[in-house]
């Protein structure tokens, strides 16, 4: 995975709480292969387009934010379904950082596995960013993962990210490679566990 150090780009303001993963990508698009043009085209689709496919009045359709690399939202972003395609939709669109006061647990965990940073800020800082003239003008916002800071013009705020996830993103670590380094310990554990807990094996 590509290491994540810093990011600079326009930030799309989405001043809404509880944007669930069904909104980020509707189930109806998930039977299409990601290899065909990526999932970016489906990102927040029903916010962006009406029933006839006509563009709605929505931030991502605004030229200031249409090439956003960052999204700023209110609390509980990515709650709901475990669908990783929600993260694929963001990443394929070009968004590799979401700033919000809190995130759905599974969404946040999926983000890390795809090089997308879920940056948790205070409610007050989220509001300040959402109201910042710099952000609203579509000017570049800078995210520094090592420093855990977000700078938008003269506004600078810090963000939280669990240290395990920070290390993974900064180093571009891959879970499977990391785990395989422990193959011996896993095999030893499995042997012992299964001999002590024979009941835990499914009856055939």
């Amino acid at each position: 995975m590509k290491p994540f150090r810093t990011l600079e780009g326009a930030a799309c303001p989405l001043p809404l709480a509880n944007i669930d993963t069904d909104q980020i990508i509707s189930a109806r698009f998930m039977k299409r292969p990601r290899s065909e043009g990526g999932y970016g085209q489906y990102l927040l689709y029903d916010f962006r387009f009406d029933e006839d496919g006509k563009a709605r009045d929505f931030a991502l359709n605004d030229p200031r934010y249409s090439n956003a690399r960052i999204v700023i939202a209110k609390r509980n972003f990515g709650c709901g379904s475990s669908r990783e395609p929600a993260v694929y939709a963001l990443a394929d669109y070009g968004v590799t950082c979401v700033i919000a006061p809190s995130f759905g647990d599974i969404f946040a965990s999926n983000s890390i596995r795809n090089g997308v940073l879920p940056a948790a800020v205070s409610e007050a800082d989220a509001d300040a960013l959402l109201q910042s003239a710099h952000v609203l003008a579509g000017l570049p916002v800078r995210v520094d993962l090592a420093q855990q800071t977000i700078v938008a013009g003269n506004l600078s705020v810090s963000f939280d990210v669990p240290m395990q996830w920070k290390a993974r993103l900064i180093n571009g670590w891959d879970d499977v490679d990391m785990t395989r380094a422990h193959a011996g310990e896993i095999a030893a554990f499995a042997t012992k566990y299964e001999s002590e807990n024979t009941w835990a094996l499914p009856k055939r």
Partner: peptide
């Protein structure tokens, strides 16, 4: 608990998962 696709792949390949 529910997991995402990358975690599904990890469990398929290793029968383990990293968690906090």
């Amino acid at each position: 608990f529910g997991i995402g696709a990358s975690e599904v792949a990890h469990v398929l390949m290793t029968q383990t998962i990293w968690q906090k």
